[in-house]
Each structure stands twice: as C-alpha cells, then as structure tokens.
Amino acid sequence: MAKRQIPEINAGSMADIAFLLLIFFLVTTTMDVDQGISAVLPQKIENQSPIVIKKRNILVVKANKFDMLMVNGEETPLEGLYQKTREFYVHAENEELPSLITITPGLAKEKVLTFKSWHEQRPEIQAYKDSLEEWTERYRAVEIFGAYQELPKNAIISFQNDNATSYEVYVAVRNELERAINDMRNELTLRAWNIKFQDLDPDKLEEKEKIKIVRRVIPQRVAERAPTKNAEE
C-alpha cells in the first residue's frame, strides 16, 4: 500500500467546458470599440455678455437644414472645408484672414523676461502669471520649431448648425476641422520628434509638455453657436 497509482483525470470533457465558456463570451460581449471625436462643452455662465470679434478673425462655418455648408459666406462643399481651415491658420497677409503674429526667438525671450520680472514684483496678479506661462511655452516652441506664425488670441472657428441639420453632416464637419488641425500638428511633431501628435502620451511628463507646446502653436479653437431654428431659414 506504499504507492497507489492515482488514476489520471479524464480530460475528454475539457473541450466541452472551453466551448461553453467561448459561447458565453460570444453572447455577452460586443466587438465595437469605443471611439469617436472628443469635445469639451463650454461651461455654463449666466448673463454672459457677447464677445465682439473682428470679422477677419472668425472662420464662420454654417450648416443649414439641407445639410449644405457655408464657409465665410461662401457655399462650400465638405471637401473644401479642410483647405479653408488650413488657410485660416497659415496664410500670407490678407485683409480677410486674421493677421498672424510672428514669433521670433528674440521676441519670445524679451516677453518671457518682461513677464518674469512683472510676475516677481506682483505675484498675486493672475494675468501676469498666465502671460509668463504662455510666453515660456512660445519660447520653448521657437527653440524647437524655429520662428513661426501664430493666430491672434481672439481668432476662432465658429460653427453653427441648424436644428434640422443631420447628425451625420455635423460630425463630418467636426471631423474635417479636427483633421485639418491634426494634420498641422502632426507636421510639427513629425518634423521635430518624428512622432504623430496623437501618439504623444499625456501620462508621461515630458510628452505632456510637448503636447502643450504644440497646442500653443496650433490652437484648436472651435466655438459652437446656438443652432438656428428650423423656421428661420
């Protein structure tokens, strides 16, 4: 009785058990991954006074109830939006488009030093602190990308749709705006670090810094206006 042969466990039903599990997972799970276009809604502010922006500083995109697009007063097919968006960011001096600010190493350095001294004298003023931060980012950007042109601070893309515009067209417009901006950002990041903008990881400190700098150079400022009512147009 010293050694008794233990009979082997029959593994014949293993396949059946595995099949059962497999079928359970097939039924309870779905394939579709969660992806989409992210956006941040503006915070609700009571009694906000309207902001006046010069006409040349706005890229007006409108979609009507027939799903047709108008960009800066011109009827434009969806295919044309990408080019117009890029033009808004990068263009030669033009009376109808925003006048870009050229950021040179000299200018950035000067501004950083100015705001630094102001901030040191009056550390309680938030505006000085913000400006110092902005210009530090610009200074870093100039170091990396060389002199560049930036949109003026109040330049925005304004998107207005109708209540009867289809969701499909709305997303298509947002997508085109996003695509134009992403492409411009990618051009910067590919040249400087040989990486796509989307591949920068915000969880890593160094790459988070890079994201901030790229966002400073190519800001994404899409504002949505309250939709037009169906009856108006």
Partner: peptide, 28 residues
C-alpha cells in the same frame, strides 16, 4: 446618423446644466 441636430443640441444643453462637459461623439 440620420438624427437631427435639434435633439443633439438639447442633450448637450442638459449635460452643460449638470456640468458634465466632456463628451465624445461616438464614430467608427
């Protein structure tokens, strides 16, 4: 995709009211 923007705008307004500002337009 064939939904009208009227309902989408209303949903967005409701979300703003409860300060849930991060949204994602789900798209393939």
């Amino acid at each position: 995709k064939k939904a009208r923007m009227g309902v989408v705008s209303k949903i967005k307004e409701e979300l703003r009211d409860v300060n849930a500002l991060k949204i994602n337009y789900s798209a393939n």
